[in-house]
Amino acid sequence: MNIFESLLTSLKRASEVSVSIMKPRDEGEVTHSLMIFLFMLQNKGEIRISEISEHFGVTSGAATGIADKLEDLGLIERYRSKTDRRVVTLVLSEKGKKLVQDKKKEHVELYQYILHDFSEEELLKIIHMLNKISDRIDSYSNKGDI
């Protein structure tokens, strides 16, 4: 295995174990996939239903189903465009914002516990390297080469 295969294997494993520890543990809790969507919505501020379809690679009907479920749970609110009623925008409700904040706090505390024996210097180095990798991937993606 060459160095790049080892890197990809390590990144994949880190991603998989990170996802596994952040999955909801209680029955009835919002699923991991829905939580990812709520975090994305928090970062963007608002999102159109069509963007859900594109981002998650699902049909517009499935995207509407996701929105329906989150709206039924009181986690998002829908707004129709005043200029084009076909355009529906989603935003986090106050309950949704609180859930995202609580989950973020839970994840930070979890990683503080797991990585407690790493020095600040080591953590900063990891952050720097991961950001550098992400920037390179993003740059490559934006060139249209993918």
Rank of each mutant, 00 (worst) to 15 (best):
V91Q: 11
V91T: 12
V91G: 02
L92G: 05
S93G: 00
S93D: 09
S93P: 09
S93A: 03
E94W: 05
E94R: 12
E94D: 14
E94F: 00
E94A: 13
E94K: 13
K95N: 12
K95A: 12
K95M: 11
G96M: 03
K97V: 05
K98I: 02
K98T: 01
L99A: 00
L99R: 07
V100M: 08
V100G: 05
Q101H: 00
Q101D: 13
D102T: 09
D102M: 07
D102A: 12
D102R: 11
D102P: 01
K103V: 03
K104F: 00
K104E: 02
K104G: 02
K105P: 01
K105W: 02
K105A: 05
K105I: 10
K105Y: 06
K105S: 09
K105E: 12
E106T: 04
E106Y: 08
E106F: 05
H107I: 14
H107V: 14
V108L: 14
V108P: 04
V108W: 05
V108Y: 12
E109H: 03
E109T: 06
L110P: 00
L110C: 04
Y111T: 09
Q112S: 08
Y113Q: 12
I114P: 02
L115H: 11
L115K: 00
L115C: 11
L115Q: 01
L115M: 13
H116D: 11
H116R: 11
D117Y: 04
D117C: 05
D117S: 08
F118L: 15
S119L: 10
E120S: 15
E120K: 14
E120P: 10
E120C: 06
E120W: 08
E120Y: 07
E121Y: 10
E121C: 02
E121V: 03
E122V: 11
L123H: 01
L123A: 12
L123T: 02
L124G: 13
L124P: 06
L124Y: 00
L124H: 11
L124I: 11
L124W: 01
L124D: 14
L124T: 11
L124S: 14
K125C: 01
K125I: 06
K125Y: 03
I126Y: 00
I126R: 12
I126F: 07
I126E: 02
I126C: 07
I126A: 15
I127V: 15
I127A: 15
I127T: 15
H128C: 08
H128N: 14
H128E: 13
H128Q: 13
